Structures are given as C-alpha cells and as structure tokens.
Simulated assay, not measured.
Amino acid sequence: MLNRSYQVLAEYYGISIVPARVRKPQDKSAAEASVRLVETWIIAALRDMKFFSLKEVNEAVAEKLEELNNREFKQHIGTRRSAYLEEEQAYMLPLPTAPFEAAVWSAAKVPNDYLVSDGRNKYSVPYNLIGEKVDIRATKTIVEVYFHGSRVASHRRLQTKQREPLMKLEHMPQEHQRYLAYNAEDFKTWAMSVGPMTEKAVYHFLDSGKAPEQGYKACASLMKLGERYSKERLENACGRVLAFTTTPSVRNISSLLKNEKALPDLLQPEQPKNINRYGITRGAAYFKKGGEQK
C-alpha cells in the first residue's frame, strides 16, 4: 500500500509505483545497487569538502552527477546518458508546468457550522456536507477539501492565526446568506413600511443589546411573521403587546398572532374581584341554617 502523499506525487507526475513485497529483498535489489553507486560517486566523493551555502552543494552534486552519467559501462556499450537518450527518452512524459508541492493530509467530520480546520484556522465547506467525512489537503499556500475523491472546496491558506474563519458565500444555505446581508437601516425601513408599532418594536430589538447586531435575529423573525400573517395583523399584534409591556419579545408577538382571540385576555392586567362591596363576607348560604354550629 502507498501512503497518501506518495500516491498523490505519483498521480501528479503520471507515474506508476510498484511497492516491494514484505520480506522480499530481491524486489528492490536493483534500486539498492543504484543507491550504493550514487553514494560512492557523489556523497562519498564530497564528504571531505566544506560548503558555505546550499547553492555550492547543489553545484558540486550536479558536477559529480554529470561525471557519473557520462561514465562508460563496464559490461555494456555506452553510458547512462546514452542509454537514457536512446532507450528511455521516447517514453518520457512532459513535466507539469508547476513542480509538485508537498501536502499534509488529514480527515475530518464536517460539523454543524460546516467549518474544517488545518490545525490553526478554519475554512468553510458546502453546508450539505454536514455530518460527512472529508479529506483535507493542506500545503503552504492552499487548503483543499475532498469528498469521495472530488474537490469540493479550495481556500488560500492563512499564514497567521485568525479569529474569524475563512468563509465563501456559496457554501452557506440561503438563510445564512440572507443573515449576512442584514443591516439595521434595512430593518428600520421595513418597519416604517409596516407601521409605528412595528417600528417601535424593531427599535427596541436593535437598542436592547450592546450592539445592533444582537437584535438582528429578532428583527428577522419579525419580518417572517409579517410575511406569514400579513403586515396589518403584525402591526396590530405589536400594538397590543406594547400596550401591555415596554419590552416586547418575538415570542409574545408570535403567540398573539397564533391565538388572537385568547391571548388579549391574558394581556389585560388582572382586576381584583369586588366581593366586599356590600360588606357581606360569608354570603346568604352561610346563614341559611342559622350560622356555624358549635
């Protein structure tokens, strides 16, 4: 079996990898011989040299590699370079335009907020993948998310830890997209088109928190009630709730709209029963048999 990164490397360059079998050293004898030869001609030959930059090392290695490729075979005619040009070059594929970039793979289950993490920051995926397992590929510059082998999301990778996730509008459901478009002025304009009582309720929701955004959910719920029951009924319900309290809630307004006949009685202040108007506390039934028996 190939590990994920090695498999992706092979697919990127269009090559096939045949893994060696377990406890079968003969499967890699040719490769091991080549490794030993390169160690002798390049690494061992340069072991006593001192370099002061990576550029110097690469230049020295390239020089020794050229010498190795042009060295005559002992048992065959030609060199490694001539063998490549005559036998192998015709089968070589062109290299991709960009070199392969190593990546770190991980798996995750998409949570309810449809955000996945690269270990430092969070990135959005399509909301319909909530509850599904996805594969995350993170390179130095990009974060990609795959579902059943198909890429479903791609983000530029944030280099520093951010408080807010990196979101894409198309990954959100319609309700969340509308929520991002909300603003206080639009709510006020809509409330003005309904009536003064609704406008008063909206102003209360927007001003009741430390920031207007805290009242957006209540205002959005009020708009939905207007669409469901009509603006006229919503204005009437807001007026009746505001007549009873200075702190209206969406729950009270919604309950009134659902049961307009029963709820108004509940909203009226309870009046004390006037049972002592004439000073009779026990009533006629008490005296019917002569009063309490001792």
Rank of each mutant, 00 (worst) to 15 (best):
M1N: 15
R4H: 15
S5C: 10
Q7G: 12
V8N: 10
L9P: 06
A10I: 03
A10G: 03
E11M: 06
Y12S: 01
Y13N: 04
G14K: 04
P19S: 05
A20N: 08
R21T: 10
R21I: 09
R23A: 14
P25I: 00
Q26G: 11
K28R: 00
S29N: 09
V35G: 06
L37M: 11
L37E: 10
W41D: 07
I42Q: 02
A45R: 03
A45C: 00
D48L: 02
M49H: 14
S53P: 01
V57L: 05
V57W: 08
N58A: 04
A62Q: 14
E63C: 10
K64W: 06
E66C: 12
L68H: 08
F73N: 09
F73A: 08
K74S: 11
Q75V: 11
Q75E: 15
H76I: 13
R80Y: 05
S82G: 00
L85A: 09
E86L: 11
A90H: 14
Y91I: 13
M92C: 11
T97C: 08
E101C: 06
A102K: 15
A102D: 13
V110F: 02
L115R: 02
V116Y: 00
D118T: 03
G119S: 08
G119N: 07
R120N: 12
N121A: 00
K122G: 12
S124Y: 03
V125W: 02
I136K: 03
K140M: 07
T141R: 08
V143I: 02
Y146M: 03
A153W: 02
A153Y: 05
H155R: 00
Q159T: 10
Q162C: 10
M167C: 08
K168D: 13
L169W: 11
H171Q: 00
M172W: 07
Q174G: 10
A181P: 03
A181Q: 10
Y182I: 07
N183Q: 01
A184N: 02
K188M: 09
M192T: 14
G195I: 03
T198A: 04
K200V: 07
Y203V: 14
S208L: 11
E213P: 06
Y216C: 05
K217S: 15
K217Q: 14
K217G: 15
C219M: 04
A220S: 07
L225G: 07
Y229I: 02
S230F: 03
S230N: 04
R233P: 06
L234S: 04
E235N: 05
A237S: 01
C238V: 01
L242F: 04
A243G: 11
T245K: 02
T245F: 06
T246N: 14
T246L: 15
T247K: 07
N252D: 13
L256E: 01
K258W: 10
K258D: 10
N259E: 15
N259G: 13
K261N: 12
A262C: 13
L263M: 05
D265T: 14
L266P: 05
E270P: 07
Q271C: 11
P272Q: 11
K273N: 13
N274C: 14
I275M: 12
I275Y: 10
N276G: 13
R277P: 07
G279S: 02
G279Q: 03
T281P: 06
R282C: 09
G283C: 06
A284Y: 09
A284G: 08
Y286V: 05
F287V: 14
K294S: 15
